[in-house]
Amino acid sequence: MSILVAKGLKKYYRSQGGLFLRGRQLVRAVDGVDIELRKGMTLGLVGESGCGKSTLARLLLRLEEPTEGTLEIDGTDFFALRGRELRRARRKIQMIFQDPYSSLNPRLTAGSTIAEGIKIHKLARGADVERRVGELLDKVGLPRTAYSRYPHEFSGGQRQRIGIARALAVEPDIVVADEPVSALDVSVQAQIINLLADLQSDLGLTYLFVAHDLGVVEHVSDRISVMYLGRIVESGPAVELFSSPLHPYTEGLLASIPSAKPGDRVRVAISGDVPSPVDIPAGCAFHTRCPKAFGRCSAETPRLREVSPGRCAACWLHVD
């Protein structure tokens, strides 16, 4: 059962033309994305830096207003909501942020930070607020003494736990995790990922897990979508996507995962840089870096279509 359905999401920014640079340019950060989250499952969203995955995440939380597209969360048209209705509905979907330093208000104690959502939605009052915050601290594996401490007194991993507790305080259905471990030490990464997995099975949460590193995503995702320059180029069940990637870009990303076994790297990693989202190549956006590109790739844009049951790719190699 799908709990979140987004169709044709687009977010364009106008880059500021300077005083002497005439003609403002259009940045197509998210350029027509369909996404579906199934209840209790994890969708991994991968792509290089600058491919628009963070913008997509922010669109789903309506922290950015879309240029185009529809979003349904639990049957409600999320983009149609205004004012008080929107604020009330925001409970359903929460976010865990990438930077554990900028994601906490330095002037609030951990307790106050976690209690914010409870107070905003009046989920408890008086001493009950404190009790609930205490439970949340337990849940994310922080000591109760954390309650009256300030963010600068915690480590990165602990701060990330506070961020998780803040998100869970309003009892969301969906949690969007935007690279939640990329700023952490490797040893701490595993702890946070395990915590997220435990919370998912305890609370029946639905995750969108955004990362630029396939290795992390493989571990947690049921399905994976691969994003390139504002579009989804491949999506499918995690296991199949890893064992037999359809899109040459996915193949390249997989090849870039470092291997423990020497001599195991037979596949070729992608070369070159991501083109600027101001100047997305015509045809398939990836053809400039694709080792398998042929004539049609630079002329026509392939659409995301089902290649085999449950597996989609936007690539001319997979069109009969």
Partner: peptide
């Protein structure tokens, strides 16, 4: 532009 402001906005704060 700091993430904690996005976080409170996402929580539903006015």
């Amino acid at each position: 532009g700091r993430e904690f402001v996005s976080a409170v906005e996402a929580l539903g704060a006015g």
